[in-house]
Amino acid sequence: MSAFPYIISMAIFVFGMWLMSIADQVAGFEALVFFGGILCVAAAMAVPIQLLGHRESGV
């Protein structure tokens, strides 16, 4: 895995963790912010899984 997708997925992962941590401080939108954090973390996990799956498929 090259460095660029790793940096992007790590940034999305950290952003998702940050969203989940501030969800209780956003009045009226707690569930939406927390769910957005979950989606960011899931997307951050999907990027390396998809890239590694395509690169190792020829082996």
Rank of each mutant, 00 (worst) to 15 (best):
S2H: 09
S2Q: 07
A3S: 12
A3K: 10
F4H: 06
I7Q: 09
I7H: 02
I7M: 11
I7N: 01
S9Q: 02
M10N: 08
M10A: 15
I12A: 05
F13T: 01
F13Q: 01
F13N: 04
V14Q: 05
V14S: 04
V14I: 14
F15M: 11
G16K: 03
M17L: 14
W18P: 00
L19I: 03
L19Q: 12
M20D: 01
M20Y: 04
S21Y: 11
I22E: 10
D24K: 08
Q25G: 02
Q25C: 06
V26I: 15
V26Y: 05
A27T: 10
G28R: 03
G28M: 06
F29P: 01
E30T: 13
A31E: 14
L32G: 12
L32C: 03
L32I: 09
V33F: 09
V33G: 08
F34H: 14
F35C: 06
F35W: 11
F35H: 11
F35E: 15
F35D: 15
F35Y: 12
G36Y: 03
G36H: 05
G36N: 09
I38E: 04
L39W: 02
C40Y: 06
C40Q: 02
V41N: 01
A42D: 04
A43Y: 03
A43S: 08
A43M: 06
A44C: 02
M45Y: 03
M45D: 00
A46E: 01
P48Y: 10
P48C: 04
P48S: 05
I49N: 00
Q50M: 12
L51M: 12
L52I: 08
L52P: 00
G53P: 00
G53M: 11
H54C: 05
H54R: 14
H54G: 11
R55V: 07
E56S: 07
E56W: 14
S57W: 08
S57C: 03
G58A: 14
G58E: 15
V59T: 12
